[in-house]
Design a protein around this nucleic acid. Sequence first.
DNA 1: CTTATTATGGATAACATAGGTCTACAATAA
DNA 2: TTATTGTAGACCTATGTTATCCATAATAAG
Lengths: 161, 161
Amino acid sequence: MQFSKSTDYALHALIHLGHSERCNNVGIKELSGALGVSESYLSKIMSKLRQDGIVRAVPGVKGGYELARPADQITFLDVIQVIEGRQQLFECSNSSSRQHLLLAEEGAAQGDQERPGKNECLVEKVMNGAEQHLYQYLREHTVQSILNEAFKRCKHEANKK
Amino acid sequence: MQFSKSTDYALHALIHLGHSERCNNVGIKELSGALGVSESYLSKIMSKLRQDGIVRAVPGVKGGYELARPADQITFLDVIQVIEGRQQLFECSNSSSRQHLLLAEEGAAQGDQERPGKNECLVEKVMNGAEQHLYQYLREHTVQSILNEAFKRCKHEANKK
DNA sequence: CTTATTATGGATAACATAGGTCTACAATAA
DNA sequence: TTATTGTAGACCTATGTTATCCATAATAAG
């Protein structure tokens, strides 16, 4: 279980875009140079980000990419879900096994429809809880928060000199 | 990014073992039957769990598996790390890129050894924070806590009748 | 001691996904 | 119109997941 390299590239690319907000568009050449990835591969990732409305792209001379919304409204979770997809982190593979009859439906016999989550597998329930926990953390960190942190580091270093 | 089916099988198998604590050993046949997985595949998973000291195995007639320690000392994290491995969830793939020079080393110039984590990439820092957050949650849930929850469900249903 | 039973570990294979390249095409500013 | 830049698709390879099968080792019971 690991995040893909594409997620790494996407996050760093977005930070680069946020950092270069002054000049409108950043070309794939500049981006791939900064990250050390091939243009062809990175452009695929950028396309995904564009399709999901994270960045805007303009073709043509002087074209390139820019953030589609303020950097403080682009969360880590946004980016991760674009690249990794939105399937849940954990799924019980065989919900009709004897095990599940025991764990999930033991307490949910006849017509127990008033509580819908009741016959969910307990293992899955814990794992979904973990997922929500993780997502909450990832929602609290944005491209902007990275830029702020980098700026703080920079200033701190300047003071020492 | 998803947990593998093996993790699912491992968790359910351990819960089965915890539930059948009375009779000493549970054979692979009973386990695979309960989970709806082939014996050959499940035995691979059980071997891993044994190598990491989660379960004990005895071969021979009347052999089988049992938990190697109390169910409340087997956390979800333990199981996941055995099956999924212990690599970190996220690694920056190219820490020598221009991007990283900006993000990580901007504030960590000459001889800055007194703070070791200082020149870590900020993206990686957030992701490692997310990982620790997730791990903390997974440490708080054990095989025993699932058994307790199942027991509660069972009792609750009994009261209703 | 022999035998039936059970777990172990290696070899192998189908399949999906990640990671990456290349090329033809579309859009746009100069 | 043309040079430049992003888009989309085909394509390839390596790796990991999910599995199966078989020979071997260990063990309890007879």
